[in-house]
């Protein structure tokens, strides 16, 4: 097992630092035990949101994402991030600009006005993908870092969309991660923390928030969330694990909104994988800011204690 320190420029996005800061805190702290060092990416902005922003003008989406990429290039570092939406913007724009000279030139033309130039020298990774990658971390190292196993709880994994799809444009090494129909790597990550990941119907379905739909038609968006919650709880899930703060927001606040709008009650705690990892490494719920979640994490935490 390697103990080389892997350093990344930490791209925060919006929702993690500004709504679920526990994810940010957990990512930084848990990384120390995994030899993953997350360095601040100073001056980063919104990725920007691929659905809401890309829908208006893909060109400005490219340029804004390129600006964030350039900040990492200037640090000579690869980017690690914690949000599927950010992954779509930052990874995909990086990929497009690396492979499309015409597009890169047109973006650089505009960025020249702010004295910046995209060069294509950095790579972009989701932290979840790095956790799974044996060359960076791997399941064994993850397992070894666990001090308080999350035993006795069933967890439904929500992969989200924009990390894996469109699969034909993604370039995950090996292919274990790249499968967008029946992947199992997230379940393996959750199992490594001592929890029991459960399979549920239509696992790869969207949370309902993306593409600007949450803002455009909240009822429509929540109806999708409600279907997912139905399938997850049918499989006995005590909690939902996600890799995307926006999906987390949709499930976490969505349960309250579903209650208000549809009169349907849900109480399924929603945790980002970094938060679960933090718990498993012994961080307290308060240190993880779990009290900031709108849907109480208490039933999950109680069940954990009961199991221990």
């Amino acid at each position: 097992m390697s103990h080389d320190i892997h350093k990344y420029a930490f791209f925060l996005g919006c929702i993690a630092p500004n709504r679920y800061p526990g994810i940010e805190a957990a990512a930084i702290r848990t990384g120390k035990k995994l030899d993953i060092e997350l360095v601040p990416l100073k001056g980063a902005s919104c990725c920007p949101a691929p659905g809401a922003f890309g829908s208006i003008d893909l060109n400005v989406w490219y340029a804004m994402a390129a600006r964030n990429l350039i900040l990492a290039e200037q640090m000579n570092m690869d980017i690690a991030l914690i949000c599927n939406g950010c992954y779509k913007s930052i990874w995909e724009v990086n990929h497009k600009l690396k492979h499309n000279d015409e597009l890169r030139d047109s973006v650089n033309e505009v960025l020249k006005e702010v004295d910046m130039e995209y060069k294509g020298t950095s790579n972009v990774y989701h932290l979840a993908e790095l956790y799974y990658n044996d060359e960076v971390c791997g399941l064994n190292k993850l397992r070894d870092s666990v001090t308080t196993p999350l035993s006795g709880v069933k967890v439904a994994c929500h992969y989200g969309c924009h990390l894996l799809k469109p699969a034909k444009d993604r370039e995950f090494a090996g292919g274990a991660i790249g499968d967008s129909e029946h992947p199992m790597w997230f379940e393996e990550l959750v199992d490594a923390l001592g929890a029991e990941a459960v399979e549920y119907r239509n696992k790869m379905q969207c949370c309902g928030a993306g593409g600007g739909v949450r803002g455009y038609d909240i009822a429509h968006s929540l109806d999708i969330t409600n279907e997912k919650l139905t399938n997850m709880t049918a499989a006995g899930a005590d909690a939902i694990a996600d890799t995307c703060p926006f999906c987390q927001l949709q499930f976490d606040r969505g349960q309250f909104e579903i209650g208000q709008k549809f009169g349907v009650e849900w109480h399924v705690p929603v945790l980002h994988y970094c938060e679960m990892l933090g718990l498993a490494q012994g961080m307290s719920p308060v240190e993880l800011g779990l009290d900031l979640h709108q849907t109480s994490c208490k039933p999950f935490l109680d069940k954990l204690k009961g199991g221990q």
Binding site: G51, K165, P166, M204, Q205, C206, G211, V213, Y216, H220
Partner: peptide, 11 residues
């Protein structure tokens, strides 16, 4: 504006 851009169709 009802597409959630989940890209399942594209896969």
């Amino acid at each position: 504006w009802l597409c959630t851009t989940c890209y399942t169709c594209s896969d």
